[in-house]
């Protein structure tokens, strides 16, 4: 009696093993939830890993206050439906100072409302292990990151000083104040994620699917006017266009693509036929080749 395990089954089993290991060994773990498709897969895997128990850790969303409205609704509903303990963290100092992408630019906004906010939250709740949905295929510098990625008490990542990681034996030890970022989706590719969402029928925000949305064209990219905080420049009038998003983040920083793909299979089909990789829609990554590595050293997830 044997069975052939498909690649998705293997990836699933590996992710589950990683999550169980953290649940067993970390004192105060948390799952970082960004509401995107990778997070949706990660959450689904967490439901599987501990069934019939609920995941023995809370889910945390670092809210920059500039997310698409639909993301927030989706987040609250999914966590409720799955009976998960949701923590929402907002950098209140940033809010007080009025930090936002339009007033402060994408770099400052992301640093204050995302990078700093995440550090704040981890310090505040004293989380010693945080799951993230990053994948090694996303970006060159991530190809070498460990599944269990160690962070100093200052939240820094030292690429030169990573722990060797062999087999599926994970070193979860750390000193007081230090923490570990854990990436259960390390070995998944973007295509694996889409295939798994399709196979498992995982719900994702409909922002990934095309529909008529109000957008303006700015610097060669299409941005959705998600609320009235978006100041329109001279000559800009929102137009209704069939658009979808490849990645989800802060709406002023997330470019839309024009598309007719209004179902999941359409999206996968379009993605397979297209030739531009997923991160191009994210403003923050348009930088020098080593930018992601620098951001990680500074504590960006």
């Amino acid at each position: 009696m044997t069975k052939t395990l498909t690649h998705l089954k293997r990836l699933e089993a590996e992710s589950i093993q990683i999550m169980r290991e953290v649940a067993a060994e970390a004192e105060n773990p948390v799952m970082l939830y960004s509401i995107g498709k990778d997070s949706s897969v990660m959450l689904h895997l967490a439901m599987k890993a501990f069934y019939p128990s609920k995941p023995p850790f809370p889910v945390m969303h670092v809210d920059t206050t500039w997310k698409f409205r639909e993301m927030i609704e989706f987040r609250d509903r999914i966590c409720k439906e799955n009976g998960l303990d949701l923590i929402v963290h907002i950098n209140e100092e940033g809010v007080k100072e009025g930090v936002g992408p339009f007033t402060h630019g994408s770099a400052t906004h992301t640093d204050v409302m995302k990078t700093q906010a995440l550090k704040q939250a981890i310090d505040k709740y004293k989380f010693d292990a945080a799951f993230g949905g990053a994948r090694r295929d996303e970006e060159k510098s991530r190809a070498k990151e460990r599944v269990f990625s160690f962070r100093s008490a200052q939240h820094r990542w030292d690429p030169k000083n990573q722990r060797p990681e062999l087999w599926s034996v994970y070193n979860t030890r750390k000193a007081q104040g230090e923490s570990i970022r854990v990436f259960p989706l390390s070995n998944w590719t973007e295509l694996d994620i889409w295939q798994y969402i399709h196979l498992e029928n995982i719900e994702i925000p409909s922002l990934y699917l095309s529909e008529k949305r109000p957008v303006v064209e700015r610097d060669g990219q299409l941005f959705m006017v998600d609320d009235d905080r978006m100041p329109l420049r001279d000559g800009e009038t929102p137009e209704m266009k069939m658009v979808r998003f490849r990645t989800l983040g802060c709406y002023p920083l997330t470019g839309a693509v024009e598309s007719e793909a209004s179902t999941l299979t359409d999206v996968i089909q379009e993605m397979l036929l297209t030739t531009t990789s997923e991160r191009q829609g994210r403003v923050i990554d348009h930088d020098s080749a080593a930018s992601m590595e620098k951001k990680k050293q500074e504590g960006y997830f």
């Binding site: 295929d137 060159k140 991530r142 190809a143 070498k144 990573q162």
Partner: peptide
Amino acid sequence: VDGLAAEREQGITIDVAYRFFSTDKRKFI
């Protein structure tokens, strides 16, 4: 394939990097 900035400057691979590709039959790591 060469990832980290430091090593790109040195022109050598200094750590283990994982790469992914797939064909119609298999996914490879």
